[in-house]
């Protein structure tokens, strides 16, 4: 049922809905609603069969979250009550920050997993056609430049380049590898510009029509309502806490 509903909503309205939900997440300053949201996002990931991929993308955030909680437990200025060397107030601050970060990462990664990249770029090209062509050019050029980076790294290593232990040695290695890549990228940029000219880009620009279906409008209004409700709830809990 969820999948059939999701398929009726276009990528643009989905992005707008995600943005409203993100803003509503930022209204909370307590760990309980943030944890509830995180579990909801994970439940959605199970429904759409992307839980494994989502968890693997969230693992770096898990490490960062642990560092946030640890540092603030130890040295947060609002620490007054302690368990051994860990301050309770700092732990609370770190936990809320880490959960908020987790929620933002989970929601945005869920959006990326459920929307193919080409659809997102098509949605962005509605904003301006030049924006779409820039992002499409980046998509086509990036793998070539990554490959160029690997080749240059191998060639320079074969010529005797060593990364070394010290930062200045690694910085030298960085410059030796990056400069040829930049030069090749600029040459490639000239070729791309010529190809755009040859293909007549920019001569005829189609008129953009925004067509929102019923599902799109409902999704946007529901997410806006969700945002307003959350802002009111968050304010009420804040005032209740005071």
């Amino acid at each position: 049922m969820f999948k059939s509903v999701l398929h009726k909503i276009k990528t643009g309205p989905r992005a707008v809905s995600v943005l409203f939900v993100l803003i509503s997440l930022m209204a909370y300053h307590s760990w309980k609603p943030l944890l509830a949201y995180l579990l909801t996002f994970l439940a959605f990931a199970v429904i759409f069969h992307v839980l494994g991929q989502l968890v693997s993308r969230l693992l770096p955030i898990l490490y960062l979250g642990c560092v946030i909680v640890l540092i603030h437990s130890l040295v947060n200025p609002s620490n007054v009550h302690y368990i051994y060397i860990f301050g309770i107030e700092g732990f609370n601050y770190g936990l809320i920050t880490a959960l908020r970060l987790f929620n933002i990462a989970a929601l945005t990664q869920l959006f990326l997993l459920l929307n193919p990249l080409h659809e997102i770029i098509s949605a962005m090209s509605w904003i301006h056609p030049d924006l779409g062509i820039i992002l499409a050019l980046v998509l086509s050029t990036l793998p070539v430049m990554h490959q160029q980076m690997e080749i240059t790294l191998k060639v320079q290593t074969a010529r005797g380049l060593r990364r070394g232990r010290f930062p200045w040695q690694r910085l030298y290695a960085y410059l030796v590898i990056l400069i040829p890549i930049i030069v090749k990228a600029l040459v490639r940029g000239q070729v791309i510009a010529q190809l755009l000219h040859v293909r007549g880009y920019g001569l005829h620009l189609a008129k953009r029509n925004l067509e929102l279906g019923h599902s799109d409008k409902i999704a946007i209004f529901l997410s806006l309502g969700f945002l307003i409700v959350n802002l009111l709830l968050a304010n009420a809990s804040l005032l209740g806490g005071l």
Partner: peptide
């Protein structure tokens, strides 16, 4: 404009 678009894309890639 076309050189500008290409250079913006190249800048992002760099």
């Amino acid at each position: 404009k076309k050189i500008a678009l290409a250079l913006i894309a190249i800048g992002i890639v760099i």
